[in-house]
Nucleic acid binder design. Structure first.
Lengths: 304, 304
DNA sequence: TCCATCCATAAGGACACCTTGGGGAGTCGG
DNA sequence: CCGACTCCCCAAGGTGTCCTTATGGATGGA
């Protein structure tokens, strides 16, 4: 098996015309060059160099190897450069999957920071929720999945429809408080804080299926089952429905901030409801420079 | 420094999808593959493979390396094949330099045998005499130089205008007797053997400068200085001149055989005059398969 | 739940590689 | 013509690398 290192030495010998000069250029001793050439000739099965007096000349086989060496070493250098670019964040692509409407502030900030710090990198975004996003992560369709959870299920456990096999790495980004949203004509509109039990008789507007499920759990813990008239992922729609007096809702503080809460008021609810937003990835992917950098940017953006 | 061996393993891992399968295909153990991949990732500075459950997937950097690996390994394989062809005598070029008129029988026979045994090889022929042919050998303009000498100068010595630095390899081919050539009407035409001294008064026809010099030396050793009326390298011309009765000559048996000795007779002369025909090359070149094969063919042809 | 497969890790031994030191030969300048 | 420099080869020693065997942990299918 001919090794690239041998070809590099052979080429240097061919251009410099001597073992000693090649050794100086390669930063090693002359016997090292001599031994490498002997090894290469053994591998080739035929002499490659002719020692004629002082000068060093190539045989036909030597010329053939040097001819091929150009392309091989060029390819090797190109490969190293491309990998170095990826490792040095001068290139790289990060495919992000985020839960719907969860990317309104976090993702744009992080992507902007990423682009500013490492212009060669590219970030793409697709919306999906667990377990779909986790499947995509495991299938190699993305590098980072943004997700949230309400309960404190340990990350290392496999939750029913969740993401949490312990081979996943979860980087906590922020803990998002959920605030109640009521029409501004509502009796509690000016309250600092309301107990969720006092909203037992109100019509509810829920979010995504998981949000809805969690809402039901919280309400049942408070002793009532909410009457849910509407359910939509679209936060502006929720705000519109609440503003129209069609019900009350709880939604993430983050969402309220990104939507103009027209005709509504946000009030704190007790018991405190919160969700944890995390960035999920695979252990190996977390070591990829572009992925690690993006995770850092997401974390920074979450600390705004 | 990325090594080609690593790329080969990486490619196999990528195609087979597992370390174990790659190890089986490569004929080594699984930990060997594991360690190589770890080393390659260390060299690359970024993960190349993602262990997602059971399957093995490439990262962006891994894909880049595999993409480059195709060309690099193809080039390496091509280089190995070309060298193997040269080493296996399926290819190769031998440049032969021979003394003028000395190649009439030896070289054609040897070249024909070479072509028959190794159709892929090519032999080229140029005519030149020492020291010119030795200079060509040392300058890399040929691989084999056919030459002859009259005296028994040790090969290891540097003769005045000769070839014999001891870094040259001389393969003896044959010892060529020189025969006298006289017109068929000459008094000695039917003699079995003549003493060269009895030809003291004859006009002489000499060959090349070195042959002429040697003729003078032999004659002076016999006690006379030959009167040389003609000197030519061209053996047919020598025969023509002798046949026309313009003088006598001594010339190699080999030459007499290849020329129709019209109107002349060959007689043995005493003291015996002979020249030694050798194939010269450089020590390193003697190890080149095509050169070694050609030297063998020349030797065989000389033993005809 | 059991079993087969797969990967990671540790320890041991074999091998390759490079460096140092010495010698022979050739070339150039005095 | 001779000395000095350069170049290459050779041998020996130490270091590092690589592969193998053996073991453990984890996964996925039956």
């Amino acid at each position: 098996m001919i090794e690239a290192r041998h070809l590099r030495v052979l080429r240097t010998v061919a251009t410099t015309g001597s073992f000693s000069a090649a050794a100086r250029e390669l930063g090693c001793t002359q016997p090292a060059v001599s031994q490498q050439m002997k090894a290469l000739e053994a591998a080739a099965g035929t002499p490659l160099l002719v020692r004629a007096g002082r000068e060093m000349r190539l045989t036909e086989a030597g010329e053939a190897l040097v001819r091929h060496a150009a392309g091989i070493l060029a390819g090797l250098t190109a490969a190293e450069e491309e990998v170095a670019a990826l490792a040095g964040l001068r290139a790289g692509r990060v495919r992000l999957v985020s839960f719907p409407s969860g990317s309104s502030t976090l993702v744009p900030t992080a992507v902007a920071a990423m682009r500013a710090d490492h212009p060669g990198t590219r970030v793409s975004l697709v919306e999906a929720e667990p377990p779909r996003s986790v499947d995509m992560l495991r299938a190699g369709d993305c590098e980072i999945a943004l997700a949230f959870r309400y309960d404190a299920t340990p990350w290392g456990y496999h939750t029913g429809g969740g993401w949490g096999r312990d081979e996943l790495v979860a980087r906590p980004l922020l803990t998002d408080r959920l605030v109640g949203l009521v029409p501004e004509e509502h009796p509690f509109a000016d309250a600092d804080e309301v107990d969720i039990g006092t909203l037992a008789e109100e019509p509810w507007i829920a979010g995504c299926p998981r949000c809805r499920r969690h809402l039901v759990e919280v309400c049942e813990a408070a002793g009532f089952t909410p009457r849910i008239d509407f359910a939509t992922d679209d936060y502006p729609a929720v705000v519109g429905l609440v503003g129209a007096g069609l019900g009350v809702a709880v939604l993430p503080e983050l969402a309220v901030e990104s939507v103009r809460p027209k005709g509504t008021r946000a009030v704190r609810v007790t018991p405190a409801v919160q969700r944890e937003v995390v960035a999920l990835t695979l252990p190996d992917l977390a070591q990829v420079p572009a992925v690690a950098a993006m995770l850092d940017r997401l974390e920074t953006a979450a600390r705004r």
